[in-house]
Design a protein around this nucleic acid. Structure first.
Length: 487
RNA sequence: GGUCGGAUGGCCGAGUGGCUAGGCGGAGGUCUGCAAAACCUUUUACAGCGGUUCGAAUCCGCUUCCGACCUCCA
């Protein structure tokens, strides 16, 4: 714990020491989902990654305010002020009110994240709940000379902004290249520069989600909500702003521009971006149609899957890769993760059954603990942490087998280590245990089988074992007794 | 086309100028009534070609291949 936490800052493209602006407080803002359809696993990976980051900061003793928004308005299908509102389109499709769409998919999102055992954010603000804050921010940007209004729509003036600011600071791209490669103005909107983006959009007559503003009836643009809500709850400058890598080039670039134009600050000291989940090497995305829905994974109903995997096994699978690396989805990889996860959980279940030795311990838990902290302090390196924890697994199993000695203080240290890192930091819980009645039932069955074994009635004992095996319960005999787990 | 990031053993996935990552799988062993589990041992690596260096998978250059962003997407 005496090591310094370092994290990779997209803004500087290097690892930096983490030094909060106002310790022990930490402000963390993560761009949440647009709730017009089911979240897929790629979305989930980002939120699991930030859950790990949130949990570790909490574990280190920081008082973290974690703000994650729900986008429930304002997103059109293209990056122009044309096309359909995603919510309106979906509402039409499902014959629901737009706000019914929002409610339906917000609840689904929360349910999925609960299954993945993520901690809820401190504040989960919605775009529709902060229209006036967004309007105020747009007004200020216009006042500061970085936006203009045309026919009820307000655009951010990138051309003027770049005179004093670095528009591409986050992605390090050259402005000229951006200009060269941006689509030609197609004449259907009124923006002056081809990089300009909408802050407020005039609502067409058929548009359902609409609010009054100084520029007429309309709805907010796609980037302003995060700027308005992050500054409202975390201040004009806060510690960490995060999101998926796909948001960096456009969404976060524009967020920085908006905050600079309004508050004269880059909103966040550290920008963190999580990498994509891929399927056969290609990014999982809604538009590509290769997205897995969580329940398809849990049940194994997706056509690319051989079987289902529990939410905790999937969480473990995600945490076995570093958050800044792509992670590829395959049956083999999931099977391997599932077995590894169970091995870890079985070892933890053995902890209360370990025999404590009075002699001095043969293992140094303190060193192991240091390595665990070193792993996490190095930009939240959960795969290395998990590798270290498997050393703990080996120790636990060896002590259980009587091949290794553990004294009382080492045992206590090991117990705490597993509690802290497996449960608190990695957020992994055992989904293998049954209900209390079930546990009692198993105790009776195991006792009957052991009686049969003592009488050398192996026909009966094997029948019991095979019967249980066929329903997915595995028995493990040892000198200390018989253990069971679900497979 | 521009920008950026990759290419690690059967699979997944860390890391790094010299010391076994780890998980899963395979092989052998110990234990066991048998099995499973566990433990021990073991197996196959760093895309290719040059260069720097006492030493490179790790640094530099080139080549090939792949991906992301540049259009809504975590």
């Amino acid at each position: 714990m005496d090591n310094q936490l370092v994290l990779y800052n997209t803004l500087t493209r290097r690892k930096e020491k983490f030094e909060p602006l106002n310790p022990p407080f930490v402000g963390l803002y993560v761009c949440g989902p647009t709730v017009y359809s089911d979240v897929h696993l790629g979305n989930c990976r980002t939120f699991v990654s930030f859950d790990l980051i949130f949990r570790y900061l909490l574990h280190l003793g920081y008082q973290v305010r974690y703000v994650r928004n729900i986008t429930d308005a304002g997103h059109l299908e293209g990056d122009n002020d044309e096309g359909d509102d995603k919510f309106a389109k979906k509402a039409k499709l499902e014959q629901l009110e737009p706000m019914e769409i929002v409610q339906k998919y917000t609840l689904g999102f929360h349910e999925v994240l609960r299954l993945f055992n993520t901690l809820p954010p401190s504040i989960e603000p919605t775009a529709t709940g902060h229209i006036s804050d967004q309007i105020e921010m747009v007004k200020q940007i216009i006042e500061n000379g970085y936006a203009y209004e045309v026919n009820g729509t307000v655009y951010f003036d990138v051309e003027n902004y770049v005179k004093k600011h670095d528009y591409t600071i986050l992605t390090n791209r050259k402005l000229d290249d951006l200009l060269d490669n941006t689509r030609e103005l197609n004449g259907q909107d009124d923006k002056r520069g081809r990089l300009d983006f909408a802050l407020w959009i005039k609502a067409k007559p058929e548009h359902i989600m609409r609010w009054p503003s100084p520029w007429g009836i309309g709805f907010p643009g796609w980037h302003i909500e995060c700027s308005a809500m992050s500054s409202k709850y975390l201040g004009e400058e806060f510690d960490i702003h995060g999101g998926g890598m796909d948001l960096a080039a456009t969404h976060h670039t524009n967020e920085i521009a908006q905050s600079q134009a309004c508050n004269h600050t880059n909103p966040a000291k550290y920008w963190m971006h999580t990498n994509m989940l891929t399927v056969n090497g290609t990014r999982m995305s809604k538009s590509a149609g290769n997205g897995f829905l969580p329940y398809e994974l849990f049940s194994g109903s997706h056509q690319l899957l051989n079987r289902g995997y529990s939410p905790m096994a999937v969480r473990f699978f995600m945490l076995q890769a570093h958050y800044r690396s792509t992670l590829d989805f395959s049956n083999e990889a999931l099977d391997a993760a599932d077995r590894g996860y169970k091995r870890l959980m079985n070892a933890i279940a053995l902890l209360p059954k370990l025999k404590i030795n009075t002699k001095k311990s043969a293992v140094n838990i303190g060193e192991l603990k240091q390595r665990c902290y070193a792993a996490m302090n190095d930009d939240f390196n959960s795969p290395v942490l998990i590798a270290e924890l498997f050393e703990a697994v080996r120790i636990i199993n060896s002590v259980y087998d009587g091949k290794l000695m553990l004294d009382e203080s080492s045992f206590a240290e090991l117990n705490t280590l597993m509690q802290h890192f497996v449960h608190d930091v990695l957020g992994l819980i055992d989904d293998n245990t049954g209900a209390a009645d079930f546990e009692k039932l198993m105790t009776v069955i195991i006792a009957l089988r052991n009686e049969a074994k003592q009488n050398k009635d192996y026909t009966t004992s094997d029948r019991i074992r095979e019967g249980l095996s066929s329903m997915g319960i595995q028995l493990k005999d040892s000198k200390e007794g018989t253990l069971w787990n679900k497979i």
